[in-house]
Amino acid sequence: MATPLEFTEATRERAAEILDRYPDEYRKSAVVPLLHLAQEEWGYVSPEAMACVARLIGCSPVKVAEIATFYPMFNREPVGEHVLAVCHTLPCALTGCGSVFDHLSEKLGIGLGETTADGRFTLRKSECLAACDRGPVLLVNRRLHTHVSPAKVDEILAELDKG
């Protein structure tokens, strides 16, 4: 394994705050929130990041890997600056998420799960995001866009380009 990773001082404080939410003998409860923290810090959850979380919790690293590899939200590989996730579950499928995905794929020149060569965009599909009345929906990083159409995709991408 590569060099061990450690959280920055600021993140360590947040980690301590998270650990405080659970009784001391059940530190492992913090594994998901800490993995979120790791992903914020490093963009994805590498084995080194898992080992870092395991050290904070005081458990075997494979027990963190069990969690990090289970949940789809944890990136196992580096991702683009912007992660675009098109909901593709039934209600969004009924309202045309297919054309949204296809349009994004064509505009960005990448397929499902791929990242653009410049490292700016990663394209994904997501399961139901619980905004079915406003579909198709598109999760861009932490922000949910609703009633998305190919035209709106262009607007969203333009906005992201502006930074």
Binding site: Y26, K28, S29, V31, V32, Y71, M73, E127
Partner: peptide
């Protein structure tokens, strides 16, 4: 972290236990 099974009450508890 994006898993449907955590909506099942005992799955939720296991998830909360880490």
């Amino acid at each position: 972290a994006g898993a449907y099974i955590c909506g099942e009450e005992t799955g939720l508890i296991e998830s909360l236990e880490g």
